[in-house]
């Protein structure tokens, strides 16, 4: 990354553009990432949202946005983004909209949509080359309904529908996106705001389908004290559980190489959803499997 406006933390915007007073949980890791994004993106944007926790950002008559917002339904945010983008383009092309009135089109969904119900709409929007930014707040479960497992739930996590720990494996949405050869894709986290800012900066400099996939530590769904949101996020990065990376021009680059890479236990121990791995007795086999998944991933990173 060169010529970034964000060389140091001090370069981050000091003005908060997303309004306070939203009904999201105290300590929400998704909201943390979203306000960091909105501080840079600003109000010349239209957020097309799908059913999830963040549907409640705007509850009539209260909105935290300076610009525009459209709630669709669960499966269709990328299709809604398509309609808005196409309409703006048509109005611009026909001279019915001054260029100053144009908006950046953003799809905003949780992991339930991004990894599951909305994936078909997403795949097709990328295939059509839709010029939009897709922000995912990934809290690894259907959080808005009380944290049932989703296709983003990691191995071993206890959810309301996997009381003994989730037996499956977290789907690799980043790889699914990059297989479509989008303009840009990146993983981010609110605990690393400078990394997030640089990636958003790059995404905004490009046209076409762009992904910011934010891991969203969730005090309510993951069972930890809200004050620990940043610490949990930081550990996700330092243990290698959440690799920070970006895809541009056909190439994946890791923007953080955790050295030394901490054992995954350090991350898992912070959250009640993994407590059963440690008590009443340590589940050595499962801990080893989770560690091995992470080790395997990083063995492939050169």
């Amino acid at each position: 990354m060169n010529e970034t406006a964000f060389k140091r933390l001090k370069d981050l915007p000091s003005q908060r553009l997303l309004g306070t007073g939203t009904p999201l949980c105290a300590g929400c890791g998704g909201l943390e990432a979203l306000h960091q994004i909105y501080d840079i993106l600003g109000g010349r944007s239209v957020f097309v949202n799908a059913a999830g926790c963040m549907t409640l950002l705007a509850v009539y008559p209260f909105t935290p946005f300076r610009g525009a917002w459209l709630y669709t339904a669960m499966a269709g945010a990328p299709a809604g983004a398509q309609g808005v983008r196409d309409a703006l383009d048509l109005l611009l092309a026909k001279g019915r909209l001054p260029p100053a009135e144009d908006l950046t089109v953003v799809a905003l969904t949780g992991d339930g949509v991004a990894y599951g119900m909305g994936l078909s709409a997403t795949s097709s929007a990328i295939e059509r080359g839709l010029d939009f930014l897709y922000i995912v707040y990934d809290n690894e479960g259907y959080g808005n309904t009380g944290q049932q497992y989703s296709e983003a739930t990691p191995l071993g996590a206890k959810t309301a529908t996997s009381l003994r720990g989730f037996a499956g494996r977290k789907k690799d949405l980043f790889a699914i996106w990059t297989a479509h050869r989008p303009a840009y894709a990146a993983t981010v986290i609110g605990a690393e705001p400078l990394d997030l800012a640089r990636k958003l900066e790059k995404a905004l400099s490009l046209k076409g389908p762009r992904l910011l996939l934010a891991l969203a530590p969730c005090p309510t769904g993951w069972d930890f004290d809200p004050k620990d949101t940043v610490e949990v996020g930081r550990l996700a990065v330092r243990t290698g559980v959440w690799p920070l990376k970006e895809y541009v021009d056909g190439k994946v680059t890791h923007t953080r190489l955790p050295h030394p890479r901490l054992p995954v236990e350090d991350y898992l121990r912070t959250q009640g959803r993994f407590r059963h791995l440690f008590e009443p007795v340590r589940d050595e086999a499962l801990l080893a499997r989770i560690q091995a998944q992470v080790d395997d991933y990083w063995a492939g990173v050169t």
Binding site: G19, T20, G21, T22, P23, G43, L57, A58, Y60, P61, F62, T63, P64, F65, R66, G67, W69
Partner: peptide, 13 residues
Amino acid sequence: AIHAALTSLRVPT
């Protein structure tokens, strides 16, 4: 529809 910005500031969370 809400024809205004930042009305959430009125919610004393």
